[in-house]
């Protein structure tokens, strides 16, 4: 049985069809890549699943229960954690406290939450930065911090929104390693990314959306051969130029 089953998901903003009739499933332990040209509706899809936006139609069934209508915090309690495309750390709080806030979800006491946060921080490679205010980290570190914060809530499903956006090649390699390590830990991940090379290497399966609709859903090898996907990316690039 699928851990997450999205069906017929639709959300428009005014006249803009951000997501239309989107359906896909995620199996337990799977890493699903979600790709598409700029403005394809990937982040909107995340916001719908995580409860930040309400769908106009469709169902989001997670572990057998419909999530539609739940507030973001309730979605997190059910076991879905997310990161943000534009990082949103608790800027004035230090690295440890950022992750402790995630750990508090399952552990009420400060001592237990701190212990858990330290473990997670070691795992993502921020163990040495514990006392630094989040605002003073580099972008790559802030992206890691968001992953750590999400992991500390002990999710069954992790939504990563462009964990490599804006990073340099070295940082991208490090981030790629981190996601692979998470994959070895058996966490289920849905991952939105622009860096196609990285996502193709790590994902089990890739869903491509374009103008808010799904145009492909297959293994990475099959997706790169798909004529519809190639057309979308080339067309998307042309659209991009016209807009700029």
């Amino acid at each position: 049985m699928a851990l997450l089953e999205v069906s017929g998901l639709t959300r428009h903003f005014g006249g803009v069809r951000a997501v239309t009739d989107l359906s896909f499933t995620v199996a337990e332990g799977e890493i699903l890549g979600l790709i598409g040209p700029n403005g394809a509706g990937k982040t909107t899809a995340f916001n719908l699943i995580a409860g930040y936006l309400r769908p106009m139609a469709g169902r989001i069934v997670f572990a057998g229960r419909d999530l539609v209508g739940l507030k973001p915090h309730a979605v997190t309690k059910r076991g879905i954690a997310r990161t943000f495309q534009i990082v949103k750390p608790f800027r004035k709080l230090d690295v440890l406290e950022n992750v402790v806030l995630g750990a508090f979800l399952r552990r009420r006491g400060r001592r237990e939450a701190e212990a858990e946060a330290r473990l997670v921080l070691d795992k993502v490679g921020l163990g040495a930065k514990i006392g630094v205010p989040a605002a003073d980290l580099t972008l790559a570190e802030q992206k890691r911090l968001e992953i750590a914060r999400a992991l500390a809530t002990r999710p069954r499903l992790l939504l990563l929104d462009e964990p490599m956006g804006g990073l340099n090649p070295t940082e991208i390699d490090q981030a790629s390693l981190l996601v692979q390590r998470l994959r070895e830990d058996g966490i289920t991940i849905v991952w939105v990314e622009h860096v196609l090379k990285a996502i193709m290497k790590v994902s089990h399966r890739v869903v491509v959306i374009h103008h808010g609709e799904k145009i492909a859903d297959a293994t990475p090898e099959a997706v790169v051969q798909d004529p519809a996907v190639i057309a979308a990316y080339l067309g998307g690039a042309r659209d991009g130029h016209a807009a700029a």
């Binding site: 309690k77 943000f84 806030l101 995630g102 508090f104 914060r149 999400a150």
Partner: peptide
Amino acid sequence: DSAEAVGI
């Protein structure tokens, strides 16, 4: 937003 994301 982040507060909601960690379940608050």
